[in-house]
Design a protein around this nucleic acid. Structure first.
Lengths: 210, 210
DNA sequence: GTATCCACTTACCAAATGGTAGACAGATTG
DNA sequence: CAATCTGTCTACCATTTGGTAAGTGGATAC
């Protein structure tokens, strides 16, 4: 009963770290102390295991982001809360970001499901940003570009480990906090029109001229 | 004589697109209309082919960035020129970004060479930014965080194709230009302290208070 | 003209990979 | 107790994969 979940978890870690193609069922099984056939018994085929991993990861991701967004107020505080939650998630469960990246690399048809699951929440985020801009709570920008850039910074922070190494930068909690502060001050400047030096704490709600 | 280069080019494309593990020598050979053994004749083993691809890609990347940085003036214009060149490179030769990402995923020992080749130019960039900050040309920030964030946005724009799809955003030349403008206005805010709406063109040199 | 070298091929091979078939042990059910 | 179902294992299998060995045809050297 427990085995299926253990396989799913291990597969998520392995797929995120070494990629789908770099992970054989035998590898996976050995790492779990079981045989490959047990995996096939639970999931039928490697393809379906991959689908299960992608789908569950997407749902986990969406779960965190959706609840965070709903719990916050409106305008800038939402942006701040989502960025904060994203960084926390990225540090606590980097596999999820890794899987998302792997999904992008696999492309269709693998990505179909994930993209469809992600689309509504991204559309919500886009609409929210756009309405805040209409209300003058945020400066006008292409919300999709804001979302993409933000995602890229969060994802890059955890997945581009070798670039981090080349920069002599370890992604510990301190570095993650710095990164988050920097991203927030970028966004603050783009969305609120007030620039920070990166050392200042993010301010609360601000009203921007349209 | 020409074959070796053709193999190298095709391997670069394939490794960037489907990953090292997702690309077999037979695949590669068939795509080139030759046999696998011809590839092995020129490169000895798959490992050495991979090394060759990684190394040449890193050098190509460095070549573009280094000449761009040297051709510019000092302070903000350098940042602007490098970002511009990076985006142009990312659109014109996305494989190079793909290979860099793949390098990160492979990790050591594969990444060793690339990281060592990249380190000096990144160190230069860091030093340059730091000195501009010391001179008051740019606002004080952690240069490494600036570099990482900028790289993440550029790389994410070309490699996170499925996130783009989920956002209903195609990365054509127009979108790339928008992205670039957004990144530049982020950086402008962080480094010059003047925020734009994302629609304004980047301004020229500005002097910032320390 | 023969020897040599270069670029490439055909013919194999051993290991790894995803997958099938069937057996076995333990719990559940009648 | 017999029957069945569940989860796991052992035993195979076909294909793919990276790699070796042994040529082959053409250009160049002497």
């Amino acid at each position: 009963m427990d085995t299926k979940d253990r396989v799913l978890n291990q597969a998520t870690l392995a797929f995120a770290e070494r990629g789908v193609d770099g992970t054989s069922l035998d590898d996976l099984a050995q790492r779990l102390g079981i045989t490959k056939q047990t995996i096939l018994y639970h999931f039928g085929s490697k393809s379906r295991l991959i689908e299960a991993v992608l789908s569950r990861s997407a749902q986990d991701l969406i779960g965190v982001l959706a609840t965070t967004a709903k719990e916050s107020e409106v305008g800038w505080p939402v942006v701040e809360a989502v960025v904060r939650a994203s960084f926390e998630l990225a540090v606590r469960r980097p596999e999820l970001i890794g899987i998302l990246r792997e999904t992008s690399r696999l492309g269709p048809p693998w990505s179909e499901g994930v993209v469809e699951e992600l689309r509504p929440i991204l559309a919500d985020a886009e609409m929210a940003l756009r309405s805040y801009m209409d209300e003058g709570l945020l400066l006008r920008n292409d919300p999709r570009v804001i979302l993409l850039s933000s995602y890229a910074v969060v994802a890059g922070s955890v997945t581009e480990t070798e670039v981090l190494r080349a920069l002599n930068l370890r992604l510990d909690l301190r570095a993650a906090a710095t990164l988050r502060r920097t991203l927030l001050s970028f966004l603050e400047a783009a969305l609120l029109g007030q620039s920070g030096t990166g050392d200042s704490e993010a301010s609360s709600t601000g009203r921007a001229t349209k």
